[in-house]
Design a protein around this nucleic acid. Sequence first.
DNA 1: CTGCATCCGCCTCGATACTG
DNA 2: CAGTATCGAGGCGGATGCAG
Lengths: 228, 228
Amino acid sequence: MTARTYGQYCGLAAALDVLGERWTMLILRELALGPKRYSDLLERLPGIGTNLLAARLKALDAAGVVHRPDAAGYALTPRGEQLRPALDSLARWGWELLPDQPKAGSVRAPWAAMLMRAQMEASGGPGVAAIVDFDVGGERFWLRADAERADLRDGPAPVRADVTARCDLPTFTALATGRTDAREAIRSGALEIEGDRRLLEQLLRRFRLPARTNLSSMPGFPGRMRNL
Amino acid sequence: MTARTYGQYCGLAAALDVLGERWTMLILRELALGPKRYSDLLERLPGIGTNLLAARLKALDAAGVVHRPDAAGYALTPRGEQLRPALDSLARWGWELLPDQPKAGSVRAPWAAMLMRAQMEASGGPGVAAIVDFDVGGERFWLRADAERADLRDGPAPVRADVTARCDLPTFTALATGRTDAREAIRSGALEIEGDRRLLEQLLRRFRLPARTNLSSMPGFPGRMRNL
DNA sequence: CTGCATCCGCCTCGATACTG
DNA sequence: CAGTATCGAGGCGGATGCAG
């Protein structure tokens, strides 16, 4: 009954009173890619439990972070959209914790794409204006970039894209981590392009994630960490 | 035994695997103000419970976020310091959730000061270089500002400050929220200054927090929210 | 079928008591 | 001072039920 709040007059504590419970920020991550229905969220958040998702959505609605534009479907409110810098910042910090090689089934292309978008914005912006339509192993999402900012949504692009890129998930993660580049992937046939090839190459160059210090070599590891 | 992780190859999920449990980010907030001992943390985190604090510190140590420079005392590692932008971002988002009037006992001057520092950095930087020593109701902390960034630590300034400011907590929150300004507070005697008065006035102008939309007037309020 | 609510076992949390 | 041990209450995860 007595909702567990920190009761501190502090911005961080107040934010965590709303966002701090398990799964909450991950729900918002999914909704940041576009509106979704209850069952969409369930399938993208493996392990969450149906009751918990319902409870979180209700709480987020009450907090003014999420709303229901139509009867079936949840979306971020403007207040929820304002969370993006914070989620980006956390994601960039967490990126360095991830192992070099993802465990099978733990990767979703949009998650990597979100990270790359955040990274791009943090390092001076995309630099070019473009709309790119991705198909990564059948998963569709699209990016709208301008000089400083980039926006990422799932689903197919609702407008005509400048470039269309199709590849499988391993290729995409290889592109993301810089283990390969666009030119090479195209040459090997792993990446299929339609439209302005140079635009995509330009973007992917800015898209690259920073190298990670390998955690397994850190003192005190493993503690209670990762099991991807 | 099986530490509850999300198991997603996603920066945000990885960050939350380390930071997502209750109290963790608030511990880091405290350590971001400077190294502290176990009992210092206990007293600044009312309600945390001794076992939980010990467990969190152990986990954060294992994760490479916190370390113990000397036998009794915890501090952020460089990796922990890198969390500042993320904590700042969350704090700025959460600021707008706070009620205009804090409940008695729920305010700590450094929390407001942290928020002001984050706000200052986000809106173009302090603009001036200065070291300011604060004494707010007996609580000491100091700010080192340059054109773009600002650093805030608790305790008295270890170097000679350009300005020394002394006031009580209500005056400080009034300054923070813009309900009063430095000139007025000095004139009324609520704020005592030693040193370069104009420097402080300049800083405090950049220090002001944005106005908040009053939550209580929002649809769906109260849901499960604040009880400060 | 989607969108939950209910129930159940376990784990986390918070409070208190106790120890080196 | 700096934690560990213990225990009740509640949050979480999984399975199942059920209404629209």
